[in-house]
């Protein structure tokens, strides 16, 4: 029971961290690393679940694209 509760608590924190990453990425990051997203806002809420689920990968790609630009694609 304790392990299950701990696991769920970890999951909750993971998703909350994902929410913070999603807010930062959709407000500041996406326009810098994804040219086709500039000026497009309606589709951004669709990305929130994905960012919450794989936010470590999102952070990795965000930093990679910031550092290496289009060469990283």
């Amino acid at each position: 029971m304790q392990s299950a509760a701990l696991l769920l608590e970890l999951g909750r924190w993971y998703l909350m961290a994902g929410g913070v990453v999603a807010a930062a990425f959709l407000v500041f990051g996406i326009d810098r690393v994804e040219p086709s997203a500039r000026g497009s806002y309606a589709f951004r809420p669709l990305l929130i679940p994905g960012i919450c689920l794989i936010w470590p990968l999102v952070l990795y790609r965000w930093f990679t694209l910031e550092k290496h630009g289009e060469d990283a694609r």
């Binding site: 690393v33 994804e34 086709s36 997203a37 589709f43 669709l46 990305l47 679940p49 994905g50 689920l53 794989i54 990968l57 999102v58 790609r61 694209l65 990283a72 694609r73």
Partner: peptide, 27 residues
């Protein structure tokens, strides 16, 4: 179910471009 959620949530064209084809395909 978690895998299906991740795949559904990353099915928009944006993800293919943002993650790059090799990572997106592997995912």
């Amino acid at each position: 179910l978690l895998i299906l959620f991740v795949l559904a949530a990353t099915s928009h064209d944006f993800w293919l471009s943002f993650l790059g084809a090799p990572i997106w395909k592997a995912l």
